[in-house]
């Protein structure tokens, strides 16, 4: 009875997990739990240890030390039982080049011995209806990922693992994958997601674990994380006069110079924004436009790790 309730609450239970590759410490003593029915996101840059962790839970890799249980079973001992109850979209998912979408889903449903797998339903869920006769090699990146998600669901799994489902996709294809994932979330599936897109984690996840260099640096709902770690407003003034920087600085804030004569200021309260604008006006200085927004996970990540989530953003954020 004890085990049953535990499984009902904690689908995944990771305790002091460590993984080494020779001298490299890929995962360093991490612990977390995933509750039934939640979307749990591992957010972190490339090389943080996301895929290593997820592949250990999926039984593809073996841990160096620590205990990982999935659906109440030890992942190092019950591989055969576990694989029947999970669905996996591996990183850089690929399949047989000359096999069509429908045939591929059929193939995987046979591997799971699912005689009555709802292949049409899966094709519909992944929004692949007009591509069902297309061979895999002719599919675009987004379509391949959606097929991968459909395949991850053929055995009606208790947990779905999605390892970077939108990496390398253009923004539109990414949105289309998100639509499919939102459909999954609505169905109440337990989903373990890894990503380095904070929008993805913010949009989909109930719980986010921020992972950096093999360690979890923060964990909680996106709102909690922002509240806890980035409780401020980000004010950006665009195309400002020379003297605006000094004016704001004299007021006791810490402005930061950015591109195109922009300055960024963190303020604790909306009233501060009003104060700054009034002071600039009174001093006779000017700016072209302004932008005030609440910080997102990107800023939380930056604050916690001192590094950007993605390399392409590193330059912009550092300024």
């Amino acid at each position: 009875m004890q085990i049953l309730t535990k499984e009902a609450e904690h689908v995944i239970d990771v305790e002091k997990l460590t993984k080494r590759y020779g001298d490299l410490l890929a995962v360093n003593d991490i612990s977390f739990t995933v509750r039934k029915g939640e979307v749990f996101a591992f957010l972190g840059p490339n090389g943080a240890g996301k895929t290593t962790t997820v592949e250990i839970i999926e039984t593809i890799r073996t841990p160096t030390s620590g205990k990982v249980s999935l659906l109440g079973m030890d992942v190092t001992k019950k591989k055969r039982k576990i694989v029947r109850r999970i669905g996996v979209l591996p990183q850089e998912f690929s399949s047989f080049d000359r096999i069509t979408v429908r045939e591929t889903i059929q193939y995987y449903s046979r591997l799971f011995n699912c005689r009555n797998a709802d292949i049409d339903g899966l094709i519909e869920l992944a929004n692949l209806k007009d591509k069902s006769k297309e061979q895999f090699k002719n599919l675009s990146g987004g379509l391949k990922q959606r097929l991968g998600i459909a395949i991850a669901l053929v055995n009606n799994p208790d947990v779905v693992f999605l390892d970077e489902p939108t990496t390398g996709l253009d923004p539109r294809a990414r949105r289309e994958v998100w639509d499919v994932l939102l459909g999954l979330k609505k169905k109440g599936k337990t989903v373990f997601l890894t990503t380095h897109y904070m929008e993805e984690a913010e949009l989909l996840a109930d719980t986010v674990a921020i992972i950096s260099r093999g360690s979890i640096v923060a964990m909680g709902s996106p709102e909690e994380l922002i509240e806890r770690n980035a409780n401020y407003l980000a004010l950006t003034l665009q195309s400002v006069d020379e003297k605006v920087f000094e004016i704001v600085q004299k007021m006791g804030f810490e402005p930061v110079k950015a591109n195109h004569n922009n300055i960024k200021v963190r303020v604790q309260h909306p009233d501060d924004v009003q104060k700054i604008l009034n002071t600039i006006k009174d001093a006779g200085a000017s700016f072209l436009s302004l932008d005030v927004r609440k910080p997102n996970l990107e800023e939380v990540f930056l604050k916690l790790t001192g590094a950007a989530l993605r390399e392409d953003l590193a330059g912009g954020v550092a300024q």
Binding site: R80, V83, P90, L111
Partner: peptide, 8 residues
Amino acid sequence: RKLSTTPI
């Protein structure tokens, strides 16, 4: 890698 997460 995908196949290794199935019952095959």
